[in-house]
Design a protein around this nucleic acid. Structure first.
Ligand code: FES
Ligand code: FES
Lengths: 145, 145
DNA sequence: ATAACTGATACTATATTGATATCAATTAAA
DNA sequence: TTTAATTGATATCAATATAGTATCAGTTAT
C-alpha cells in the first residue's frame, strides 16, 4: 500500500525547493536536476500546481516557477488530493442495490471514520511545517538516516 | 487514493460471512453468490487467507471454508497488509545517496508518524468488532444509507 | 537573432489490480 | 461405485493506474 505516489512525492519536494527560495523564479530544469526528478514529468506537475494556484510561472529566459500560496496554507492533504484523488475507502454499493449488502455498510461506516482521521493528520502537515523542520535539520548539521 | 482495494474489501466481506456462520463450512460458491464477489477471484483470496491461518478449508462435496482465528484477533490492518502490502510512504533514497536529499528525509519523518497513526486506527477495527456492529445494525432493522 | 524558458498535448512503457480459465485431487452422497 | 460438489494449484488475460518521454509552439532576457 503506497501512501504517496511519485507525483505527490515529487510535488512536495518541488514545493519545498520553491519554498526555500521564495521571491525568485526557479526553473523546472533547476528543480529537476537538484531534486533528481524526471524533467518532463516535473513540468506536468508544476503546470498542475499552477492550476490550483499554489505557484505561478514566468515564461521565457530567466523564467521559472515561484510560490504563490503561503507554505503554511498548503497541507500535503491537498497535494494528495490533487495528484492521487480524494481519499476514498471503497465505492459504496449504495446506488446499485440499496443496502442489500448491509455488511458493506457497517464496514463503510468504520472506514469513513478512519478516513477522517487520516485526512486530518495529513492536513496538519503543511509545506510550511516541513520547511521549518528542514531548516532545523540543516541547522543541526548532522547526518540523518 | 483508494484505501481498500477490491481484494481487501472482498476478503473482509468473506470473513464477515464466515464469522456469522462459525462452526460450519461455507463454500466459495455460497460466499460468491451471497456477497456478489467473482467466484475464481474469491477462491484465490480464500486460499491466501488459509496460508495466513485466518481460515481453514475442507475439500470435497459439502466442503468449504470456516473461521480459524478469533474474529477479534483479525484487525483489518492485517488484511490490508496481506492483500495490499505493508503501508509504506515512499521509498527512501537513503541507499542511493545518503541524505543528499535531506528534504526527503524531513518529509519521511513526518510521514512515518502518520503511517503509525493510520496503522493503529486500522488495528482497532477487527472483524469481531464489525460483526458486532453488523448484528446491532440488523437488530435495529431499519434502512441505512 | 538566439538561447533559455514555459504551455500544451500526445505518446509509450511498466506495474498493479481485477478477473477468468483449466485441470487435478478430494469427498459426501445417490 | 459412480457422480456431483467441492478445494488446490496455476496460468492467463484484461483493465486501469502510474511513471516517464517526446514534440512543437510561444515567450522573454540577453
Ligand atoms: S536520505 Fe533518507 S534518511 Fe537521509
Ligand atoms: S449499502 Fe452503502 S449505505 Fe447502505
Amino acid at each position: 500500500m503506497k501512501v504517496l505516489t511519485k507525483k505527490t512525492d515529487y510535488a512536495i519536494r518541488a514545493l519545498l525547493m520553491l519554498g526555500s527560495r521564495r521571491g525568485e523564479y526557479v526553473s523546472a530544469k533547476t528543480i529537476s536536476t537538484d531534486q533528481d526528478i524526471p524533467y518532463q514529468f516535473l513540468r506536468g506537475l508544476l503546470q498542475e500546481m499552477i492550476r490550483y494556484d499554489l505557484i505561478v510561472s514566468k515564461e521565457g529566459a530567466q523564467g521559472g516557477f515561484m510560490m504563490k500560496k503561503e507554505p503554511d496554507e498548503i497541507p500535503i492533504a491537498q497535494l494528495i488530493e490533487i495528484f492521487q484523488g480524494k481519499v476514498q475507502v471503497s465505492e459504496c454499493m449504495f446506488r446499485k442495490q440499496i443496502c442489500a449488502n448491509r455488511s458493506r455498510c457497517v464496514l463503510r461506516h468504520e472506514i469513513m471514520r478512519i478516513e477522517q482521521v487520516v485526512n486530518s493528520e495529513f492536513d496538519k502537515v503543511t509545506i510550511g511545517k516541513l520547511l521549518r523542520d528542514l531548516e532545523a535539520a540543516n541547522g543541526m548539521a548532522h547526518g540523518c538516516g
